[in-house]
Design a protein around this nucleic acid. Structure first.
Lengths: 195, 195
DNA sequence: GAGAAGTACTGAACTATTTGAATAGGTGCG
DNA sequence: CGCACCTATTCAAATAGTTCAGTACTTCTC
């Protein structure tokens, strides 16, 4: 249901092919509505059928021909109407890793540490990518300046949300690693670690 | 795929009926794997068929008979194995509200403010509920003490993740509200607001 | 010059998730 | 008394999302 509007919102950045969108939905941006390429191609077909986007075929020299989609006025209008409606469904987080953490007390602490460290470096990697997108959006200006004067602030603000999410994710991992250490070697008065 | 382990992990807290689980999955706990009652009943059926949980029928005085499910040794073992495996799929966030925010620049700022304020109070409400669960888990002890000495820390740590998430959510909303104010009345040297 | 990986897309089958309703007695409110 | 909501579960149907594979040509690397 919302994939429709996620695609329309993505096309606010300008025309894009299904392939290009699948990159955006996969890696870049604070991705708050994941979608596989197959989903996107299907949705683009539907939206074009409903006249909310229009396709333009672009033959290329050394690559397969691509179809670039852009918003029609009708699409823009529907997106605007959607964005002004009250939010129906609450945020849904699906996180396999947190299920593992919920059950971590039955697992070898060394193994848990490994999993948490993996998660941490993954979060830091994503954070670094977000920061690069941020630099590009700010384009040399300061944040306050940009937020006061720029034409569009939506993309920057959602990016900030993604940045905060991954930063706190990494911090949480560090907290867990500390807890694991403390539980392994409880601090005695002399602070002597046990074998 | 992961719903299976989410259910097994929930049953680590003790036996529960489908109805009780649907409450837990819906409101309480840092909910990182949402599921509807229908999904849960089906999954419980499947897990019982596979011998990972076992059912016990409990007739009640003034309520319908319920079936309480609890982990079998096989279920506990599979959960343990799952929790030690590397995480396959990354965190997926589905957030209709952030799609609206991405497209907010085409919408009346007063309407956007309303939506953000609604989101903020929703986040604060959830935060308050999490804090109550936290008090119950800590049971009078300090956090450090609990994390060092308690038998199980998984549930507390995932709860902390949920608390951080909602706290940062509320903070993000406040940031956005400030930005909206600044854009409406840009601060001049005399700081005089415009009509 | 072979193999891997990237661009760009399509198709079919499958699994997961959501929605709506039905059953059936109990409790609380005015 | 009647209405709405709570406990407890089940069934059926619709929608959404995932997985696997395949086409076809290009560029990069060993």
């Amino acid at each position: 249901m919302s994939l429709k509007y996620a695609v329309l919102a993505a096309l606010l950045e300008g025309e894009a092919s299904g392939y290009e969108l699948s990159k955006v939905f996969d890696v870049s941006l604070a991705n708050f509505w994941p979608a596989t390429p197959q989903q996107l191609y299907r949705e683009l077909e539907r939206l074009a059928g409903d006249g909310l986007i229009e396709a333009r075929t672009v033959p290329q020299e050394r690559r397969p021909t691509k179809r670039l989609f852009s918003l029609t006025e009708a699409g823009r209008e529907q997106l605007r109407a959607f964005a002004a409606e009250p939010t129906r469904r609450p945020t849904a987080i699906r996180d396999e890793f947190l299920i593992k953490m919920q059950a971590m007390d039955g697992v070898d602490p060394d193994r848990v540490r490994e999993l948490v460290e993996e998660r941490r470096s993954w979060a830091l990697g994503k954070l670094a990518r977000y920061e690069r997108v941020r630099e590009r959006l700010l384009d040399g200006r300061g944040e306050e300046e940009h937020l006061r004067d720029s034409g569009r602030v939506g993309p920057y603000l959602t990016l900030l949300a993604g940045i905060t999410f991954e930063r706190e994710n990494a911090r949480w991992c560090e907290r867990v690693l500390t807890v694991l250490r403390e539980r392994r070697a409880p601090a005695g008065p002399a602070g002597q670690p046990l074998g």
